[in-house]
Design a protein around this nucleic acid. Structure first.
Lengths: 269, 269
DNA sequence: TCAGAAACGATCAACATCGATCATATTGCA
DNA sequence: TGCAATATGATCGATGTTGATCGTTTCTGA
């Protein structure tokens, strides 16, 4: 077996499990301990894995996966105050007892803080949102079934015939990566898929985007502006952008930045 | 067992409940007290947990009372040692890469600790199991969709056409409230419903019950003995009960109770 | 307050892992 | 083919890890 091939096998093994022993790699590659040790040493200096006594481990997760996936939690703190005021306006649209759908995302996640005192049927495809509502509220929580994607922090099923089809709500809340004349844009194909599953289960689509999203563009278009009932954003929105929404018949809510937002201690997702 | 793997298991256990004793960790990892103490000391200086007399606790402040609702958590500590040994045997049946189904329950929940180092597709209807696996393992986690029932800590949909129907596994693991000549018994109609949804998605049914369950009776019968492939229990099982399983063609695995030496020596008092 | 029990830390022998070295096998190239 | 360069596998002493023991400290209940 060639050196490169062993390296490939070793790296693959290390990705699969948190820690792989020298013995396991010997069995996998059918080579000797000495060779495996040399390989580990080489890959270690290349920083392709971390060497530990008895074997090797993946370099990527220095610790365990945080309470939320990494891409989620880094995004989490970004513009948290703005996102929070936007989320507050979103929850203000809701009436107790009226079912809603919340699509996963960092902005929509902020809604959970204002939902703690509510009692509503809430359907979501976001594991962190479900977790938080379950622990800190008395709302009825409903979850879509499927595989949990760690990076996006959503639950998605490749099948159409899941429980999602049986839930109806007046409003669905969602974020987006961009919002332009062509409509709602998303960057991740997986997210598009998840959103398309939910989008038809509600009458009104409420989009939560901070004003920077009006200048963001992305390759994947989820739906046109006409499909959107309401947009909630912050006061950074420009007149031109507000006009665009108005002509498309989209209601606009501008959340004023509240200084009292700091009182909510920054909870982890 | 390797150091990293022990650390994973220890940290996994510490997350599950506020404080974990050295003895419990010895049982979980099958290593000596001395080793566990060294591990705790190491993890303590790494600030990955806090060391306390008698064991260790999570570093993060009491967080919140676990999502494990009250009925869950009180049951949780009951016969924890037995449940853990049973759960260990259950995980020992599994092969990496082979998909499994885990039905919700306090006994099956114990499996998560032994699954931390694994890499398998795992389907479950239990929110706590999904949550723990998501945070402390690299397994692919799949969740059934529906309403989250707080008391039973399971996710259940009133509809038949959910993602569950599309998942297949060689083995399904489940607990029960009772196990008698008539078959598997459960107390809660909701649990029966959840279990019936899953039971046909796997070839082999593996039942995890501590030996006291052989003397429990309940009003609701889930399935007959013939449907069960394997029963895992502790050494409190009586010959008569073992015979019953044998004649029904059910494989029996008796998990050895660990630290039994001590208990025997305390019996002579 | 005291005695017994449990938990702890230190120590040491047994064991596993590691790194260095050298002999052998494989590869690349003329 | 022959030779040099490199990769591989085996050996062995060095080092790290584990589990048992024992004396000390801390906790608990009478």
């Amino acid at each position: 077996m060639h050196e490169k091939e062993r390296h490939r096998i070793i790296l693959s093994a290390v990705q699969e499990k948190p820690v792989v022993t020298v013995q396991e790699m010997v069995e996998l590659t059918d080579s000797s301990e000495a060779t495996i040790r040399r390989d580990i040493a080489a890959l270690h200096v290349q920083k392709r894995l971390r060497r530990v006594r008895g074997g090797a481990e993946a370099i990527s997760p220095p610790q365990f996966i945080g309470l939320a996936g990494r891409p989620f939690s880094v995004n989490e703190t970004l513009n948290a105050a703005q996102k929070r005021s936007i989320a507050r306006e979103a929850v203000n649209l809701c009436t107790d007892g009226e079912p809603i759908i919340i699509n996963g995302g960092t902005t929509t996640f902020q809604m959970v803080h204002f939902l703690t005192g509510r009692r509503m049927p809430i359907f979501t495809n976001s594991f962190p949102i479900a977790e938080h509502l379950l622990k800190h509220s008395k709302n009825t929580v409903m979850l879509s079934g499927g595989t949990i994607y760690r990076e996006q922090n959503i639950i998605l099923s490749p099948f159409d015939n899941d429980v999602t089809r049986n839930f109806y709500a007046r409003r669905m809340f969602m974020g987006a990566q961009g919002l332009g004349p062509l409509g709602l844009m998303e960057g991740d194909p997986l997210l598009i898929q998840a959103e398309q599953k939910l989008i038809d289960q509600a009458d009104e689509l409420v989009v939560l985007v901070d004003s920077s999203k009006f200048r963001m563009r992305s390759s994947l278009i989820l739906c046109g502006l006409s499909r959107i009932a309401t947009v909630i954003t912050d006061d950074g929105i420009e007149d031109r952008e507000a006009k665009m929404l108005e002509t498309a018949g989209v209601a606009l809510i501008v959340a004023r930045k509240q200084s009292s937002d700091k009182e909510e201690s920054s909870l982890q997702a």
